[in-house]
């Protein structure tokens, strides 16, 4: 039997992402989870700088544009003064993992009771596709025109695995938006992350492998295939740190 499907009121507005950009899917999933957890009147989004900033235009919820990379710190301030409000940072990989690596890691280190959503599209989308710390080896970007030289620029790094392995966090997962099956799985990850926060379990991060058709120079369907073929082998999908109650169950 068919299920009712309706874009949540929280984000039911046109947004100015490029055609085929994954942001729109992730935002909808976040909004669906918020509604299902009855948090729509109890939510603040500290938003990063980059394409993630475009979220602010279409969202009908409290949000604050944070200085570049600092969303996890802003979220910390918000959460400490309003511990019963659900705080979700929404950032890209450039924001959270390049300029904001310190703030991102330190929030995880403190096991701050916030949920971090990072859209990893392996480049700086907003400024036109520069190399990110998550760009793959040999990936061509506008600042690695001959392909990323990992010997000189470092290897792409895996944030959820890092915090899951090193820090006392509540939940860490990576999903993607390449297929209905993966989208549904991603929604479960997001919901777990939010539930972890609502239950006071601590820091949760959900990284999303997301296409950037514009800067990858691919059509949206091909961009999704690129994730399947090239990104997932490097960035495995799954849960790297599960919630304690889930492990017990």
């Amino acid at each position: 039997m068919a299920k009712e499907r309706k874009v949540p009121a929280l984000i039911d507005n046109p947004m100015s992402f490029c055609a085929g950009c994954g942001h729109g899917i992730v935002i909808r999933l976040v909004a669906e989870c918020i509604e299902e957890l009855n948090q729509q009147d109890n939510i603040i989004f500290p938003i990063g700088v980059g394409c993630s900033s475009l979220l602010g235009g279409g969202m009908v919820a409290d949000r604050l544009h944070c200085p570049h990379g600092r969303a996890a710190s802003v979220a910390t301030g918000m959460k400490r003064v309003t511990p019963d409000t659900t705080i979700i940072t929404y950032q890209g990989d450039g924001d959270a993992y390049n300029i904001g690596i310190s703030e991102s890691l330190n929030a995880a280190y403190r096991n701050e009771n916030i949920t971090v959503i990072t859209i990893n599209n392996t480049n700086f989308g907003m400024t036109g596709g520069q190399m990110s710390w998550t760009s793959l080896p040999d990936q061509k970007t506008t600042t690695s025109p001959k392909g990323r030289d990992s010997g000189a620029t470092g290897l792409p790094f895996r944030f959820p695995e890092m915090v899951a392995g090193q820090f006392d966090v509540a939940y860490a997962a990576r999903g993607t938006v390449t297929s209905p099956k993966n989208v549904n799985k991603l929604k479960k990850y997001i919901k777990n992350g939010l539930e972890a926060q609502i239950n006071g379990e601590g820091y949760s991060i959900i990284e999303v492998l997301s296409p950037c058709p514009t800067n990858w120079g691919l059509n949206p369907v091909k961009a999704m295939e690129q994730i399947e073929e090239q990104l997932i082998p490097y960035y495995p999908l799954g849960v790297f740190k599960n919630r304690k109650e889930k492990q017990d169950a």
Partner: peptide
């Protein structure tokens, strides 16, 4: 159309809705 909602699931721009 079988009203499966996959279009809704994959659409980044909120084009689709399935109403009962």
């Amino acid at each position: 159309c079988i009203r499966c909602g996959i279009c809704y699931t994959m659409c980044p721009d909120g084009v689709y809705a399935i109403a009962i």
